[in-house]
Design a binder for these strands. Structure first.
Lengths: 202, 202
DNA sequence: CACTGCACATGACAAATGTCAGAAGGCCTC
DNA sequence: GAGGCCTTCTGACATTTGTCATGTGCAGTG
């Protein structure tokens, strides 16, 4: 019984190479490839794969978003996320979206093939190191608004702009920013943004 | 006549897949693989490849640094850089370091194989799109100090800290920051940092 | 040699930001 | 229903920035 696989990654080089390698496995068959989030969805609808191997960062819609949609449209399709930069928060989001596997690109193709089988069998697989990171990073100490404001502050926008975009008063924005900064124990909001990014909290 | 290739990329999955694909070509032989900058150098010394295919972002030392060292130690080895995120400035730095080829990971393995041959033959190859970006991005308008200060400002450090680390007075730091901001035509230093990053000027 | 551009500085002012106290309404929980 | 936490606001204050004018010294260039 062969496992029908959908491969989505925006880097042609990697996608092609991966497809070739996975095809060497007798029980795996790459039935579709995609280079963007929306394309991955379309391909999934057209080919109904057993397992979707998605890159976390893709143009259009990221792996987690695609996974969420897939979950709703093709419940029989298991999702496995592959990523280069494993931020702890992403793992949490991915798991919440019903993703069954989460691995860094540092694994070998051999291992990936095994993991695809694991996931296809209905089991979960999370890279132990990423899992450890996620646990040690813990939950976000930020409230919903704090995170929202921090996100709007991400591109260096002044408070006035953040306030406008969030439909809040400037004072409120500064308060949220201030409390986020103190919760994260950093110097200023820009460092806060970076830290929250690293931890995957925004 | 076969081309002896060194492959360096920190992502095992990609490296392995690439090695497999390139090995399908009759005239290419992957003689060594590395997962970090220093390792790439060591492997190059040991195996003296004809062409080194380096990922731009690797732990230890990035592709351009490795290229610089290789240039000095193994003049016969041509360097080809492969990257996911092609920032215009990187291309310039790479070319200055004597790199013969620069391509994004969105090319196919087929194309990559051709480009390896091109580079091995002593010719240069730069992805047209990246080249266009680099040209349109132009040269950095920043002076050496401005760039230096901007870099120190990158992690959201306050002026006082930047001043200390650069051994400058706070006023001077603010002046540099201010002139960088106005040269880049952005709102504040944080946006300046982001823009300079994007353009590869820092 | 005068001119230009860069490095570096000071001082002063305006604007943005960070911090704090306080206060009101909403929601949840014991 | 009292207490706790979140959201939202205001006002006041200290600190940090951004901006500008202005100065010196040094290197390179026509």
């Amino acid at each position: 019984m062969t496992v029908r696989v959908l491969l989505a990654d925006d880097e042609h080089l990697i996608r092609g190479a991966l497809a070739a390698l996975l095809s060497l496995e007798d029980d795996l068959m790459v039935v579709a490839e995609a280079a963007s989030g929306p394309e991955a969805l379309a391909m999934a609808r057209a080919h109904e794969p057993d397992v979707a191997v998605l890159d976390l960062q893709m143009p259009g819609a990221d792996g987690v978003k695609v996974a969420t949609s897939l979950r709703a449209e093709l419940p029989g399709c298991q999702v496995l996320i592959v990523t280069s930069h494993g931020r702890p928060g992403h793992l949490k989001r991915a798991l919440a979206a019903g993703v069954r596997g989460f691995v860094p690109k540092t694994v070998s193709a051999q291992r990936l093939a095994e993991i695809i089988r694991t996931v296809h069998a209905g089991n979960r697989y999370v890279d132990p190191e990423l899992a450890a990171d996620a646990i040690s990073a813990g939950d976000s100490p930020l409230t919903a608004r704090e995170a929202e404001v921090l996100e709007l502050a991400a591109d260096g926008a002044p408070v006035a702009e953040i306030a406008e975009r969030a439909a809040l008063s400037q004072g409120t924005v500064r308060n949220y920013l201030s409390s986020a900064v103190s919760k994260l124990g950093v110097e200023n909001r820009h460092a806060a943004v970076r830290l929250a990014r690293e931890r995957g909290w925004v």
